[in-house]
Design a protein around this nucleic acid. Sequence first.
DNA 1: CTTACCTCCTGCCCGC
DNA 2: TGCGGGCAGGAGGTAA
Length: 277
Amino acid sequence: MPELPEVQTVISTLKKQLAIKTIKDVDVYWDNIIAYPSVKEFKKIIRNKSIVDYNRYGKYLIFDLKTHVMIVHLRMEGKFYILDEAEPYSKHAHVVFHLSEGKFLQYIDTRKFGKMYIYEKVEDLHSYSCFKNIGYDAFDVHCNAQYLYVQAKKSTLSLKAFLLNQKIMAGVGNIYADEICFAMRLHPEYKVKNFTKDDAAKCLIETRRILNEAINCGGTTIRSYTSSLKVDGRFQLKLQVHMRKGEACPVCANVIEKITVATRGTYYCKKCQSKKC
DNA sequence: CTTACCTCCTGCCCGC
DNA sequence: TGCGGGCAGGAGGTAA
């Protein structure tokens, strides 16, 4: 599923492959993808708007339409394909943007969980209603060790749930949460209330290191893309524990286990990540 | 305040 | 082979 690094890769690719384009029209084949405003309003606002920039916050893509912004969350399986006029639509294309210069931008999403929003552009991102429960992006300057320490000390959450909580820090999903727990050598159920200042600092350092590695990985695959944009699991090659049930821990060779933490499938090494309280 | 559970969806995997 | 059931999962919602 697309987490911060995958979203960053999509943004970089859109920026490179589309640059500035005008949206001539939009087709919506599944209304529930459009979260705000109504489908009718969405279509009306977007027509003849130019996309002047592409940005990211947490796991959200932000299309800068000068007077407005279009914000997209890919959720589980959302992806964008850039097509030329003659190419056929995918059967999972739920929203199709007709762009200038004969380009089409298809939004593909087999599970239809993704969401799109359009707002009038304002200075403060957090005033968009879709961001009202979104905390600082993992790379935001406000997301520092002291901030994480304060959040951890007043939280009842386990480390994994803390990392997944977008209200605290935005961008980490199920895959990278497992990798961060492993890098910290802490059990995913470790209560973050027990964090020391060093733990908070390490949490931030490992989070950013892992996300950056994944971004660099995604970045290197871009040049092999043709007309379509796909973010597949190339980073999986580098995953230490996630999806590795039954395999040997890369550090101690103990068998990696799968449990459920915060209702999510969670992979960890019992030996390396034993500290649990 | 927290926590537990439901909803949205489809593809895939399992057992029969 | 095919059919039913269970499962996975980000985030928002509601109930307790």
